[in-house]
Simulated assay, not measured.
Amino acid sequence: MARTVQITFDCADPDTVARFWAEVLGYQLQDPPEGFDSWEEALEAFGVPPAKRNDASAVVDPEGSGPRLFFQRVPEGKQVKNRVHLDVRSAPGLEGDARMAALEEEAERLIALGATRLYRHEPAPPLDGGHIVMADPEGNEFCLD
């Protein structure tokens, strides 16, 4: 039986990181529970103190095909390079200069959203088409591929 997955991010500011990834992937913030117009209203009804209302957030694929991304507040900051990272497929089917131009364009869009550009790997055919390594607003590495 096939399983679905959720990708979980440890972070200091779940709302900010969730909104960033929603923009990157064309996802949306997960809707509040049925019967509530907003998460603020739901959390108030559940008795969650204001200081705890940014302890978690989630984004979902509006088409329902991609994995849910869950963001949870943790007390410690990021220490080392991620052992697992996301590859954001920004130039499928493109090669060479066209591929790298598409990746550069996407990198600029993501920088405007709060990402940091780390470095660029030039194409090395036949197996490496080139990619750009980025970091989200809390330093989690990901690749534009």
Rank of each mutant, 00 (worst) to 15 (best):
A101E: 09
H85Q: 12
L113W: 12
A112G: 10
A51R: 11
R99Q: 04
V84K: 00
H121R: 14
G96A: 04
F36M: 00
L43P: 07
S38R: 10
A42W: 06
L113H: 13
A51G: 11
A42P: 04
E76V: 07
A102Y: 10
I111L: 12
A112K: 15
R68D: 08
R117M: 13
D55Q: 06
N82F: 13
L69V: 10
L118M: 12
A51E: 00
R120T: 15
F36G: 00
W39Y: 06
A102Q: 11
P33I: 02
G93V: 11
A91P: 11
P50W: 03
E105V: 11
G47V: 02
F36N: 05
R68A: 10
P50G: 08
P123R: 12
E34F: 03
G96R: 06
V84W: 06
G114M: 07
P50S: 14
A45N: 07
A98K: 14
R68H: 14
R68E: 15
A101Q: 14
E63Q: 09
L43C: 00
F36E: 11
E63P: 07
E105N: 13
H121W: 14
A56C: 01
A45Q: 15
E34T: 12
M100A: 03
P62N: 03
R109G: 07
A58W: 09
P67R: 04
A98W: 02
L43M: 05
P62V: 12
N54R: 08
K52N: 04
A45K: 00
T116V: 13
E105Q: 15
E108G: 03
